[in-house]
């Protein structure tokens, strides 16, 4: 194998994206706390049925509403009620820090994407070669991750099969999904690009997909961290941060 250490631009973008992702996770959780109900469809609120609710703040099932009054012209199933409950809401800084971190993530992500594409990084280091890709090999690789002594990590991008597939899913599916569903919650963006609303089955569906995509990214982060620790924490961290480049 030739020299395989992480390139400088990979290290830099990895660092910025890691920090933005952590900030997005914290602020995203704070935003979710102010309305921990998720829906499917075009719209959803305390007066419509939820897909599910998360018991993560005092707003969970608070029922603090005045008696619902029906809109008479609409057959009586559509109602209005005023909220009398003082909800938990830290979205002033929650939302602004979420979007600030999102700017860092989107711009750095775009630079990463362009550089990764044109430098051949994706093709060379992430796309599994035709010879290495088979179900049997994938299974063997999967099993090897649970051995007492997992496959040793190198100092750079000599990735295993499963690792390549996972990174590709994260880069080309989960991140675009979480960003696009985020856009779909914006009234100004969907005014210009209404196809987003159709693509994700409505604004509240997009919010729910955003939640699941973010959860999947968190799960990835967790497994990523476990593998970093199991294959040599110090060496791995040095390799992706301040370790000497090749």
């Amino acid at each position: 194998m030739q020299n395989l250490r992480h390139q400088r631009w990979v290290k830099a973008t990895h660092f910025i994206i890691t920090l933005s992702f952590l900030a997005l996770t914290v602020s995203g959780f704070v935003i979710l706390m102010s309305h921990p109900r998720l829906y499917w469809g075009q719209a959803g609120n305390d007066l419509t049925p939820a897909l599910f609710e998360l018991p993560i703040s005092r707003n969970y099932q608070h029922h603090g509403f005045t008696k619902p009054i029906p809109f008479t012209h609409l057959g009586g199933t559509v109602v209005s009620a005023a909220r009398t409950y003082d909800i938990f809401n830290q979205n002033g800084w929650g939302r602004s820090s979420h979007f600030l971190a999102a700017w860092f993530l989107v711009i750095t992500g775009l630079l990463y994407f362009i550089t990764g594409w044109f430098s051949g990084h994706f093709r060379r280091n992430l796309l599994p070669g035709a010879k290495t890709f088979s179900f049997r090999l994938a299974l063997t690789d999967f099993r090897s991750h649970f051995r007492k002594q997992p496959p040793a990590a190198g100092k750079g991008p000599q990735y295993g099969l499963l690792q390549r597939v996972t990174y590709l899913v994260v880069i080309f599916f989960l991140f675009p999904l979480v960003i696009l569903t985020g856009f779909t919650m914006s009234p100004a963006i969907t005014a210009s690009y209404p196809f987003l609303i159709k693509m994700f089955f409505g604004e509240e569906s997009a919010r729910t997909i955003h939640f699941f995509a973010a959860s999947a990214l968190l799960l990835f982060l967790l497994v990523h961290l476990v593998m970093i620790i199991r294959t040599g924490f110090k060496q791995n961290i040095l390799a992706i941060t301040f370790g000497k480049p090749a």
């Binding site: 305390d46 209005s80 909220r83 969907t190 005014a191 209404p194």
Partner: peptide
């Protein structure tokens, strides 16, 4: 973004219940 684009408009059948938050009287 286009500053002339209209926000998405829905068919009447998509109208939902509507909570009033903040000040209510």
């Amino acid at each position: 973004l286009s500053q002339r684009a209209l926000a998405v408009e829905y068919p009447k059948s998509d109208i939902t219940s509507f909570p009033a938050t903040g000040n209510y009287n």
